[in-house]
Design a protein around this nucleic acid. Sequence first.
DNA 1: AAATAGTTTAACTAATTGGTTAAAATAAGC
DNA 2: GCTTATTTTAACCAATTAGTTAAACTATTT
Lengths: 221, 221
Amino acid sequence: MPKHALSLDTAATRVKAKKTGKTAQRILQIATEMFAEKGFEGTIMDELCQRSGVNKASIYYHFGDKIRLYDSTLTHLFKRVADPVLQAVAQAETPLQKLRVFIEVFARNASQTHAMPAVLMREFASGGIHMPTPAREQMQRLLFALKIILSSGHQQGVFKQTDPLTTQFMIVGTLCFFISSEPMREAIPAEKKLDPTLDEIVIQLTRTIESALLSPTIENT
Amino acid sequence: MPKHALSLDTAATRVKAKKTGKTAQRILQIATEMFAEKGFEGTIMDELCQRSGVNKASIYYHFGDKIRLYDSTLTHLFKRVADPVLQAVAQAETPLQKLRVFIEVFARNASQTHAMPAVLMREFASGGIHMPTPAREQMQRLLFALKIILSSGHQQGVFKQTDPLTTQFMIVGTLCFFISSEPMREAIPAEKKLDPTLDEIVIQLTRTIESALLSPTIENT
DNA sequence: AAATAGTTTAACTAATTGGTTAAAATAAGC
DNA sequence: GCTTATTTTAACCAATTAGTTAAACTATTT
């Protein structure tokens, strides 16, 4: 009966992980890449062994089975993006600054951790059924933070009232599509110059959302 | 040597399809659902047989192999959404009306054909490598149409200049995330009432994009 | 109605895949 | 240094999976 190294995160586990965690960490790293690239079913354990240089039974020793490996992967992945966003938002002062920081830090971290948009989009496509609760909670933490930003901005009279879910989908959706489309866009070198950079997307996205929040309502024609 | 029914779309083929196309059509229908729900690798041919009530060899007779079935599925799927959008845009008069129609008709059709957002998101997650050319072309047609809308609006002095790719990702990304998240949101009945409807999303999205296109630039603070 | 071409069927196969096992190797505790 | 617990290894297995085959069946043409 193997005792799984990542089942708990107690002090004892962490001490042990320092010496033994190399293998588990490497598995997690390659698994993240593969799950993002190929999805759950598309990820083959034998290939994971080959790519990571880790023996198959070691993977099963550390993670139990494929689905638990997937769960660990996703939880780590989403936490790695959500944490810095929430931290940065907490440090910003005004709702407008918090909103800007939310978009910018999410964009930067999702772009660096580009497996995250891929995995998120796959999970949405599957109806989120296989999404582990801790991973889902990270997304809900982001949504909750955005809710606070928007409502406090509204209370202070600087923002118009908007639906936070729509706004989150605008931010997350736009950026996930942009980040994940990078390989496709790179494949067309002729238009490479015409494509916007991440910074440009962030600027336009921020401007767009801000303008809707700050400007008066547009009349229907 | 089987001659695949969908390899050509001549008049003769179409006449024949009327009598023999029932099976192929049914395969395509269930394949669409399954590819959207489970992805390429997650879709098992035996299960497709079982769900569709069609024998396995019939599938291979009509479509050759799994990847060609996938290609047919995606091409049909994207065409079904892109065509009505482009048609509606062509009928609208002003750039502003065209933009509104673009968002609205895309939203309605993607929502009805909800396999399309799912498949699109998966393809983006995979880097679009497996996306068949005809399917990709449908997305490019949409992007091209949007480019024209934005540039003609700009030339007429009603729109500010913006990057069309960003705008397309805002529209498509927001709506795909919203549409594909429906099962997840349905799973939380407590918040059901709080969730916006598709119409509400469309309204907010349209307003947001319009306000950025029409309003003067916001100064940095 | 006979011949031909198109379509569907059930049974089969070769290869892949997630997961196991027991032994070898390494590290930790005493 | 010896014992014990943890970790890694290679070989193995049962189940699944995409794809095949050849025969049966159904229309179409002449």
